[in-house]
Amino acid sequence: MIARIWHATATPDGADAYQRHFTGAVLPELRRTDGHRGAYVLQRVTDDHVELQVITLWESLGAIRGFAGDDLGTAVVEPEARAVLLSYDTTVTHHDVLTATGG
């Protein structure tokens, strides 16, 4: 399994808006993509912003191509997401998952 990881920052309201966008638009698309195995949106509140980390899980790099296209290192950040974020990474990282637990 492969974890695809992306980071962004937002205001508290922007983080809420991003979460709504993710669950309403991104997650349905991910679920329709063969080889998608799960997703997490994490947040960390600091004094002046909210840090977001999105982790999607995939069975292979080929499966990721079904979502992201051929340039696997480029983040997929839709205009609706860009509009509510203070900053975001334009690239992602991929990590082999060595241990996983849960349902």
Rank of each mutant, 00 (worst) to 15 (best):
E59N: 09
I64D: 01
R31A: 11
L42M: 15
V77M: 05
Q19R: 14
G24K: 07
T33P: 03
E59K: 03
S60E: 05
A75Q: 05
D34M: 13
L86D: 15
Y40P: 02
S87N: 11
Q43M: 11
R65V: 15
D47N: 10
T23K: 12
E29T: 11
A68L: 07
D71K: 12
H49R: 15
G69M: 06
T33W: 06
V45I: 12
D48W: 00
D34H: 14
R65E: 15
D16F: 09
A17R: 13
G35Y: 05
D48G: 04
D34T: 14
L27H: 05
S60K: 03
V54H: 01
L61E: 13
G62R: 08
Q53R: 14
V26R: 01
E29M: 11
V84S: 09
L72K: 04
A81E: 02
A17H: 07
S60Q: 04
G66T: 07
Q53G: 00
A25C: 06
D71P: 01
A39G: 08
H49A: 13
Y18T: 05
D71F: 03
V77T: 13
F22M: 12
R44K: 13
G24N: 13
G66V: 08
D48E: 10
V41F: 04
L42G: 14
V45K: 09
Q43I: 02
E78G: 02
L52K: 00
G24M: 06
V26T: 12
A81L: 07
R32A: 15
T74D: 08
S87T: 15
A75R: 03
G73Y: 04
Q53V: 12
V50F: 06
G69W: 06
R82N: 09
H21E: 07
V76Y: 01
E59R: 11
Q19N: 10
V84D: 03
P28R: 04
P79L: 12
R20H: 12
G35Q: 07
A83I: 06
F67C: 05
L61T: 04
T46Q: 11
E29Y: 00
R20V: 15
T33I: 03
E80T: 13
R20I: 12
R31L: 12
I64E: 00
L57Y: 13
G73T: 06
D70N: 15
R20F: 05
L85S: 03
R65P: 08
E80R: 12
D71N: 11
A63N: 03
H21Q: 08
L30R: 00
G69L: 06
V50T: 06
T46H: 11
A39D: 09
R31E: 13
G35E: 03
T23A: 12
L30Q: 00
L72R: 03
H36D: 01
V26Y: 01
D47H: 10
G62H: 10
G73R: 07
